[in-house]
C-alpha cells in the first residue's frame, strides 16, 4: 500500500513537470496550429544552460530559473522569426517538417558541442530537503519542481485569462484576420506566444536540472511525453495539459511499479485509446 501511495506521489510530482513542459507546446498550437516537434529539445537547451551556469558560474539551478526563462524566450523569438513565420502560409508538410528539422539540428549541435555524456548537478540547494508524510517520501528537488511547475502553469493561465495581452492572444487564436481588423498585429502576438512558450520551457528545464541529468537525447523522451500530454488533454487547452500531465505521471509510475519495463508504454497506449475515442482530446474544442 505504501508502495502504491509512494508511486502515486512521485507520479504526481513528475506529472507536474510534464504539464509544465506541455504548456508551451499547447500554447503555440492553440494560437497558430503549429506543432513544435523540437519542443523537447527546447527543454534540453534550457537544461544545458542551467548546467553550464552552475558549472562555470557556480549558480544554483534555482537562480538559473529566470536566466533560463529569459534565454529560452529569446530563442523562441529567434525560431519564430527565422523559421515559423515563413511557413505559416505554406503547405502543411512544410509546417510539420520545419520544427522536425530543428529537432534534428539541435540534437546534432548538442552532441557536437557537449558530447553524448550525461551531465547532472550533484549538489543542488534543494537536494538534502526531504518531506515524509505517512511513510511516503517526497524529495526536495522533485517537490520544488512540482511546485514551480504548478505556479508557472497558473501564471500562464492567468496571463491568458486576466490580461489584455491574454485577450489579444485569444483573439488571434480564434481568428487572426478578425483580430487584425481589431487593431491587433497577429505577427507580434505570434512572436510573444513563442516567447512565453520558450520561457515556460526554460523554467521547466531549470527545475528539472535539480534532479534529472541532461543528455543531447533528453528531448526525445520529454518531447514525446509533451506531445502525448497535449494531444490527450486537447491541443490548445491549458487545463487539459495540466490534468493530462498529472495523470500521465501517475500512470507511468504506478504501472512501472508492477511492470517496470512498461511504465512508458502504458502512457502511450492510454493516449492512443483516448484519441481514438475522442480525436480532439479530453478538453479539446474541436
Amino acid at each position: 500500500m505504501t508502495e502504491l501511495s509512494q508511486a502515486s506521489v512521485s507520479g504526481l510530482l513528475l506529472g507536474a513537470i510534464y504539464a509544465l513542459v506541455a504548456v508551451g507546446l499547447t500554447l503555440i498550437f492553440g494560437v497558430m496550429d503549429i506543432v513544435n516537434f523540437a519542443h523537447g529539445d527546447f527543454l534540453m537547451a534550457a537544461m544545458y544552460i542551467t548546467f553550464f551556469v552552475w558549472l562555470y558560474g557556480r549558480l544554483d539551478p534555482l537562480v538559473s530559473i529566470p536566466l533560463a526563462a529569459l534565454a529560452m524566450a529569446g530563442f523562441g523569438i529567434l525560431v519564430y522569426t527565422v523559421l515559423i513565420r515563413r511557413v505559416l502560409k505554406g503547405p502543411v508538410l512544410s509546417q510539420i517538417i520545419v520544427t522536425f528539422g530543428l529537432l534534428v539540428f539541435m540534437r546534432g549541435i548538442a552532441q557536437l558541442a557537449f558530447t553524448a555524456n550525461t551531465r547532472g548537478i550533484p549538489d543542488p540547494l534543494v537536494g538534502p530537503v526531504r518531506l515524509v508524510i505517512g511513510g511516503v517520501v517526497a524529495g526536495g528537488a522533485q517537490l520544488t519542481a512540482a511546485l514551480g511547475a504548478i505556479v508557472c502553469t497558473v501564471l500562464v493561465y492567468l496571463l491568458l485569462s486576466r490580461t489584455e495581452l491574454g485577450s489579444a492572444i485569444n483573439a488571434v487564436a480564434q481568428d487572426a484576420d478578425a483580430a487584425r481588423l481589431m487593431g491587433i498585429d497577429p505577427n507580434r502576438i505570434h512572436l510573444l506566444t513563442w516567447a512565453v512558450a520558450g520561457a515556460s520551457v526554460g523554467v521547466a528545464g531549470a527545475l528539472l536540472m535539480n534532479f534529472f541529468p541532461v543528455t543531447p537525447e533528453i528531448g526525445a523522451g520529454f518531447g514525446l511525453i509533451a506531445f502525448v500530454v497535449v494531444s490527450m488533454g486537447g491541443f490548445g487547452s491549458l487545463q487539459g495539459a495540466l490534468i493530462a500531465g498529472l495523470a500521465m505521471g501517475v500512470i507511468q509510475d504506478v504501472v512501472g511499479l508492477f511492470q517496470p519495463a512498461y511504465g512508458f508504454a502504458a502512457i502511450f497506449a492510454l493516449y492512443l485509446v483516448i484519441v481514438m475515442v475522442r480525436p480532439q482530446g479530453l478538453f479539446g474544442a474541436r
Binding site: F100, F105, Q111, L112
Partner: peptide
C-alpha cells in the same frame, strides 16, 4: 559524439521547409 551529419540534415530540412 560525432553528430555533424545530424546538424547538416537538420539545416537541410529547415531550408527545404522554408
Amino acid at each position: 559524439g560525432n553528430a555533424l551529419d545530424l546538424v547538416i540534415y537538420g539545416l537541410l530540412v529547415m531550408l527545404i521547409a522554408v
